[in-house]
Structures are given as structure tokens and as C-alpha cells.
Design a binder for these strands. Structure first.
Lengths: 140, 140
DNA sequence: ATTATTGCAAACCCTTTGCAACTTA
DNA sequence: TAAGTTGCAAAGGGTTTGCAATAAT
């Protein structure tokens, strides 16, 4: 008799990715973020001795591919934040201080539906709202 | 008596930007795009003798700032497409061949409203839908 | 045992910058 | 004339790559 699958697979295994120390560390760092962080900031938070910078980039790619994080662009730079597969939603990010607030919803499905009708499949989306938060009241 | 304003200002002048050959050329290239293009592709289409590559980057920045183009990220790369200020909407871009289709609507305003209620202002958004078009039927 | 993942270090590419010259309004 | 814009060329930063070694299933 074969082993039965564990009752709850880690998010990584569910996504078909191997569970490595680097990936677990990156996921853990993402989960604790107060606001979106750059690849390099994540590399630092993970601990530069935990894994190589290049590996962090590869990990972020694999997690993105697996839908385990959200990538947003603020001021032209890529930032990463965690994604809970069970509750997809979006955020506003302050263009000045990167502070972030959940908007708790995703209103994209009608657009996805239309895209599907137009022959597209494997549809993904990224929505980025940016603004200036109340603490950063300034122009532009 | 002073000169009265022209009946119709160019989009550039309306945006408070000076009308230069480079900007006009970039706008014209954008308007003719069949699918989103990278800064470098735009530089090539504009004609490398028309203006410098660095200038194209500066122009794209100013047009983005002015809301005269849309910037999207496909496969992690920045691509540009035209934006008609009178009719803001979104697109699906094929992750394989970059082909693009209009979705004709923007459903973001409820999210923007909520962000405003949370103290954000000067809100902007970028929405990117990507998928695989019918011609590129493949996995992933 | 097989396949995926990582480290290392170099290469790459995209993008930005400073400054003087030149346009545009 | 004043302010904004451009060219040039060089620097900068973020990101990717190849390959051998290593770890996960």
C-alpha cells in the first residue's frame, strides 16, 4: 500500500514546487511584510547567508508563476507582496512611502469573462492602484 | 489684445508639455501599434536618427506622467500602448505573441472610491490582463 | 535514482544621469 | 528670454545565465 497524501499539503507542494529552505524563508518574509518589498529587500530580510541573491530572483519567479505572490510596479520598480490563494484581492500602495492598504475585493471577473469570449485562456491579471496616502500629502 | 487659444490644442499642449518632434513621433508610433511595444522597439520605429534612445525613455516617462499612454508589464517587461484620454479602458495581451484586444471598459472606480475613503488621493491605476490567445493555444 | 534547485561570478540589458547645446512658447 | 527638452556618452542597477554541486521527492 502506498502512502496517502498528507491531509494538508504546504502551499509550495500544492503548487507542485519542492519545499526548500529558501522558498519557505521567502514565503515567510512575504507573509510578514507591512508593505510591498523589492527583490533586494527580500533578499536582505531572508538573510544574505540563507540563500543567494540570484536564487531569490528565481524563487520569486517560481512563486509568481505559482500564484503565491503578487507582483506590483510602483514608480517603475517591481515590488512583491504575499497572495493568499483563498482570498484574492488588491491593494493601494502609496507612491511616496509604499504604505499599503487592502481593498478587499477584485472586480475583474467581468473583464476576464470577456477576454475568454474573445478566445483568450489561462488568463491572469495584475491590478495596481497607487496614490498618496494621508500621511504623505503632497503634490503629484 | 492677446492671442486667443487655438480652438483645439494638441494632446501634448493640453497636457502642458511642449510639442517637440520626438514627442510627436512617439505619439504617432504609439497610435499605430498593433500590440504593445517596448521602449527599444519604439525607439527603432521612431527612427534611430529622429531622436536619441535616452530621449525616448524621457519622452515615454513624460507621456506616462501626462496620461497619454499606458504602461503594462508582460513577462516582467515594460510595454507601452497608446491611451485615448477620452476613453480609458483596458486590454488583454497574449503572453506569447503580444497580440492585444480591447476590453472596452474599466471597472476600477469602486476600488478607487474605496481607496479615497481610506485617505489616498492622486490615485492612479494599472490593470494588466494577460492570457494566451486562440492562435497561441499552448500550456502555461 | 531522478529531477529540481542552488551558489557563484560574470555577463547582460534596460534605464538613468550630467551637462552643454538647442528648441519651444 | 525663460523654461523645457535633447544628445552624447558613460555609469548604474536590477536581473539573468551557465554549469557543477547539492538537496528534495
Amino acid at each position: 500500500m502506498r502512502h496517502s497524501a498528507p491531509l494538508s499539503l504546504s502551499p509550495l507542494r500544492k503548487a507542485g514546487l519542492k519545499s526548500t529552505p529558501g522558498r519557505r524563508a521567502v514565503l515567510s518574509v512575504l507573509a510578514k511584510l507591512a508593505s510591498p518589498a523589492s527583490a533586494d529587500q527580500i533578499y536582505t530580510k531572508v538573510g544574505t547567508q540563507t540563500c543567494d541573491r540570484a536564487t531569490v530572483y528565481r524563487i520569486l519567479d517560481s512563486l509568481d508563476e505559482a500564484g503565491l505572490l503578487q507582483r506590483v510596479i510602483v514608480r517603475g520598480k517591481k515590488l512583491y507582496l504575499p497572495e493568499e490563494p483563498s482570498h484574492h484581492h488588491h491593494h493601494v500602495v502609496c507612491r511616496k512611502c509604499n504604505s499599503t492598504v487592502c481593498l478587499d475585493q477584485c472586480l475583474i471577473s467581468p473583464l476576464e469573462k470577456k477576454a475568454r469570449q474573445l478566445g483568450f485562456h489561462s488568463i491572469r491579471h495584475t491590478l495596481q492602484l497607487t496614490g498618496l496616502c494621508s500621511k504623505c500629502t503632497t503634490s503629484t
